[in-house]
Nucleic acid binder design. Structure first.
Length: 215
DNA sequence: ATGACGATTTACT
DNA sequence: GTAAATCGTCATA
């Protein structure tokens, strides 16, 4: 074998150049890959996302067209990573989509761990965690994959450290939409069904609201 | 310069 | 179920 190395296939710019609602659903089932400094691969399949719909979205960092040093990556090319710091201790990762200059993005909320679970456990700092709990939240998955400030604004289409590999997309019938988490102050945007998850998946962050009320 | 507030997680009652 | 942890960011002044 002259070249045992298989060229890495990844999702390209065009894949990300769409609305956050469309991308949020299309990302379900795709593989997020993190390559550490010494070459180790960590990865997981995306099972939960949220769309942030731009300047009119009261839950978005870009509400009313806000453009600050923090959210500047939201205005960059589709396929850019927007990693922000919150609650004084956590990082969360978005994938910028749409067109350059239009601040729309998709928040990654949960992964089904696929490669490097022992390393993820070490990064999480909790030895006893089950695989299904390693990446079941937006800050958990960043910690498990060593995603922080240093990776903010990188280009997922070209950067060797972080990218998406095509995998088996979730079937439409298996995608559930529901209201987003942790945006209680967003008024009429609180209830919009911009959170997407794989129906019944064990690695979800917070169970979706039950459909139908008990009598 | 100041103060209010997180696109969360974890521990505890 | 409630609350603490913990600090960068942003609006206001």
């Amino acid at each position: 074998m002259l070249t045992p190395e298989v060229p890495t296939r990844r999702l390209d710019r065009d894949f990300f150049a769409r609305s956050p609602e469309s991308l949020g659903k299309a990302l379900l089932g795709q593989r997020l890959v993190r390559v550490l400094e010494f070459g180790q691969r960590l990865s997981g399949l995306i099972v939960e996302t949220e769309a942030y719909a731009g300047p009119r979205d009261k839950a978005s960092h870009a509400y009313q067209g806000r453009r600050t040093p923090r959210n500047e990556p939201m205005y960059a090319a589709p396929g850019t990573a927007y990693v922000y710091f919150t609650y004084g201790m956590h990082f969360c990762m978005n994938i910028v989509c749409g067109k350059v200059g239009v601040p729309v993005a998709v928040l990654l909320r949960a992964l089904e761990p696929a490669e490097g679970m022992d390393t993820m456990r070490r990064l999480r700092g909790r030895e006893g965690l089950r695989d299904r709990d390693l990446c079941s939240g937006p800050a958990k998955l960043c910690k498990a994959l060593a995603i922080d400030r240093a990776l903010n604004a990188l280009d997922l289409v070209t950067d060797p450290r972080l990218f998406l590999e095509p995998a088996e997309p979730a079937r439409r019938a298996d995608i559930v939409s529901c209201p987003r988490i942790g945006i209680d102050r967003a008024e009429e945007w609180v209830d919009k069904p911009l959170r997407y998850l794989v129906r019944g998946h064990p690695c979800i962050s917070v169970p979706p609201r039950i459909i139908g009320a008990p009598e």
